[in-house]
Nucleic acid binder design. Structure first.
Lengths: 182, 182
DNA sequence: TAGTGCTTGTGAACACAATCACAAAGTCAT
DNA sequence: ATGACTTTGTGATTGTGTTCACAAGCACTA
């Protein structure tokens, strides 16, 4: 909306957009403060800023990618991270053929260099390695001081409670579809 | 658990496994029937069967993959679909260089062949094409009679209400992490 | 067969979230 | 300045899901 040059938006417009009721939008916002102006609506620029602040998306964060296979390459090529202030500043693989290659201005490093992430202020990582390697990579990431992991392998990875892991398993997501199909 | 040779499991074991309370497990199951045996637990084989039935995962379903780039190739190579009875029986791309190539015993077809999916009893599809093409592909899939779509592009795709779409946007998922990081 | 130890299934109680209805506060035209 | 019109913010209400506590039921032993 901001890009479209709009400056303010009502709760009912937002509600339509995400398919909920207007009062749900207002109630939810009100738990965090008074973002809107009566009679006018919500200032789009400010609303986005406030929400980013609440979700802690108001600072840029350096992210590492582990595994530069098909999936990793797709992630590397993905352009949507900037919106949330993410920068992929490091990429790792264990395949000598890939190490040294540059993707999107990031040189692929040997996976043994994972330890250096802590010093490089990288606190998030994306795991895109084969299932068997996922746990080892996760362990290394934790040792390196990474605080959040996005795990694309279908393996349940075990980490200390302090570390947040979000797992995306394509099959599990796909498995949600049949329920809605007659 | 079944593969490990176990035959029955208690609600508290299941609860630990998914990090909830035992009574939550029992209550939830009880809404769908009496699956367990008092003093014993739940028969693993039967429980799995019942849950698959509830979630309509008890029949094999043919699925099409559209877009055989990096992401599509990663999906094609993924082995976890069998668990839920999914079979990727068709793959499409618009790149002549890829058409005809075989991946996992599936020949990549020209994207213009999407219309034929209806006759081939394919009722689910995975969209792994660049953002700009996502809506067009979705439209074609709907015309072909596909009932459920797993959308990997960050574009909100618009389809008739009857069609179920699940969108996986890597950036959105990654954006959930910072909230948990101090 | 009676007793002991588990584990399920569920009504009742409780906590939480969604919905409603409306006062408060702004805009705009006259 | 006033009145008509919008739109937010929120107490009150309603609805829904979670938690509890315990009776019911099964396995196993003696």
């Amino acid at each position: 909306m901001s890009r479209q040059g709009l400056s303010s938006v009502s709760s009912s417009k937002l509600a339509d957009f995400v398919s909920v009721n207007p009062w749900q939008i207002r109630k939810d916002f009100s738990y965090f403060g008074d973002f809107g102006t009566r009679g006018v609506g919500y200032d789009i620029e400010n609303l986005a800023k406030q929400i980013k602040k609440i979700l802690k998306l108001d600072t840029t964060r350096k992210t590492a990618l582990v595994g530069v296979g098909n999936l990793g390459s797709a992630i590397m090529a993905y352009t949507g991270f900037g919106t949330y202030g993410f920068q992929i500043t490091a990429a790792f693989d264990n395949d000598p053929a890939k190490i040294g290659r540059k993707m999107n201005d990031v040189a692929v490093e040997n996976i043994s260099m994972l330890d250096t992430l802590g010093k490089r202020q990288v606190d998030m990582a994306i795991i895109a390695v084969p299932e068997q390697a996922a746990q080892d990579v996760a362990d290394a990431l934790v040792r390196a001081g990474v605080k959040g992991i996005l795990n694309f392998s279908p393996r349940r990875i075990v980490v200390p409670k302090k570390i947040k892991v979000i797992t995306i398993d394509i099959a599990t997501d796909l498995a949600r579809l049949p329920y809605y199909i007659p």
